[in-house]
Nucleic acid binder design. Structure first.
Lengths: 176, 176
DNA sequence: ATTGAAAGTAACTAAAG
DNA sequence: CTTTAGTTACTTTCAAT
């Protein structure tokens, strides 16, 4: 569970480039990093096996998918016990409107990132899927004006890094 | 700016499959969708050109990158004027700890998703990069226990969809 | 717009430095 | 660990429908 991973400058360069465009070929990767293509293949294979690389994902434009409005829902689930929060998490993950779900420390137990058609859709979602539930004590809705991704994800220090970590991030992408 | 896009069942199948694994070959895609590989290539090319597909991204495990602690920072920027929020957004986006940034409607102006080494790193980040800034009126920090992605992103209704949308989502991934 | 087949590249394997 | 060479597989083009 706690795999020890060492990332050298070559790994970091590769990861940085692939975060910009995951379709970059090993040949292009090799040219920019300064090693042979087969070395790049080997590094990427190792990074996938070691769990540093979780997967390759398509980034879509929610607006062009017909979901032009996004919002964050802060949710209190009370009582906050396993019997209630387990099913709650699974139900929220299964909603087609859900993009991400966070279990938090603080007065608001969960934060749900949702993408909807418009305000009517959002209202329906909040009422029918959240506030109408007995275990949901409170929902606070905040609209998203604009959002930015802030990659690439890099190690804390600039020198080779050794990490021993059991990831709290669920590797599965699709709800199920 | 408001490109009209029509997604038929073939497009939706392709997008659904690629969201599970963006490395799926056109050959495999074709076999599962029931069209020729060249058709899949054509569809994907169109989806990229039309802006539905923003890019192919690598998903990494923050913990194995040496960032085992994640948090959400709610930030009030006052006064909330363009002269202040523009530079604020750019500075936050440029932080190596930032993973995502949201501009919100509500009492908290911004939500920042950060990944750090530990509590000491988080404390330093909050104090040195946020609360010490004159334009930052208030910061509220919530730790992330666990998080889930909830894909795949699909259109609101199950039948072919026509959308006319100018996206509020910034297409750029890397801070810059 | 979709197809099938041909041509061009890339991914991957294996053997050697 | 890296490189080079060679095999397999995929991507891409294109003429035809």
């Amino acid at each position: 569970m706690a795999d020890s991973v060492v990332l050298d400058p070559v790994d970091l360069d590769i990861l940085r480039l692939l975060q910009n465009d995951a379709r970059t070929t090993y040949r292009d990767l090799a040219a920019q990093v300064g090693v042979a293509p087969s070395t790049c293949l080997d590094r990427v294979t190792r990074l996938r096996r070691s769990g540093v690389i979780l997967g390759h994902q398509l980034r879509l434009d929610p607006a062009r998918m017909g979901r032009g409005l996004e919002a964050l829902l802060s949710v209190q689930v009370r009582p906050h016990r396993r019997e209630l929060i387990g099913p709650f998490v699974e139900r929220v993950r299964a909603l087609p409107e859900s993009r991400a779900l966070f279990h938090l420390a603080g007065p608001d137990d969960y934060l749900v990132h949702v993408a909807v058609t418009g305000t009517a859709d959002l209202q329906r979602l909040v009422i029918d899927e959240f506030t109408s539930r007995r275990e949901v004590a409170r929902v606070e809705t905040r609209l998203i004006f604009q959002q930015w991704e802030c990659g690439p994800l890099l190690p804390p220090s600039s020198t080779p890094v050794s990490t021993s970590a059991s990831s709290p991030l669920s590797p599965s992408v699709s709800g199920g």
